[in-house]
């Protein structure tokens, strides 16, 4: 085995196999495991995917939502065991790979058009 194959096989042990197909502009609900005072609970974070970066075990998604009038962005390591699950709640129709323009918009302008046709999922 060459170097890359060995590294990939080590990564493969920790990669999740049951991941939803994610696209830029989709609204996702991310269930995050949070440890508070020795106890573990699950917190949901729902928002629009504005960026996806890297590949393999390093894959991250940036999810943006407006919370109490303030924009909040969280970057999630998709394959992290701290991410309990991810579900796509709404498909977005966008023409860009990074939706950073949403940061400059407020109110109704932050909406992403919904994709009506169903993707092969």
């Amino acid at each position: 085995m060459n170097a890359q194959e060995i590294i990939r096989s080590i990564e493969a042990e920790q990669m999740k196999t049951q991941l939803p197909v994610l696209h830029i502009g989709d609204t996702v609900k991310v269930n995050v495991r949070i440890r508070e005072g020795g106890k573990e609970r699950i917190q949901a974070f729902e928002g629009t995917i504005i960026s996806m970066a890297r590949a393999g075990i390093n894959r991250t998604v940036t999810v943006r939502r407006i919370f109490q009038g303030i924009g909040v962005e969280r970057v999630f390591l998709v394959h992290s065991p701290r991410i309990e699950s991810m579900t796509v709640t709404r498909l977005g129709k966008v023409r860009r790979a990074k939706l950073y323009y949403l940061r400059d918009r407020i109110g109704k302008a932050t909406r992403v058009k919904q994709k009506i046709t169903r993707r092969a999922n």
Binding site: I6, N58, H79
Partner: peptide
Amino acid sequence: KLGMTQIFDEEGRAIPVTVVE
């Protein structure tokens, strides 16, 4: 030295590691 990657520990932290044969 084969290269670098990251793995998750039992608490879910991503640990950067170098893979060595």
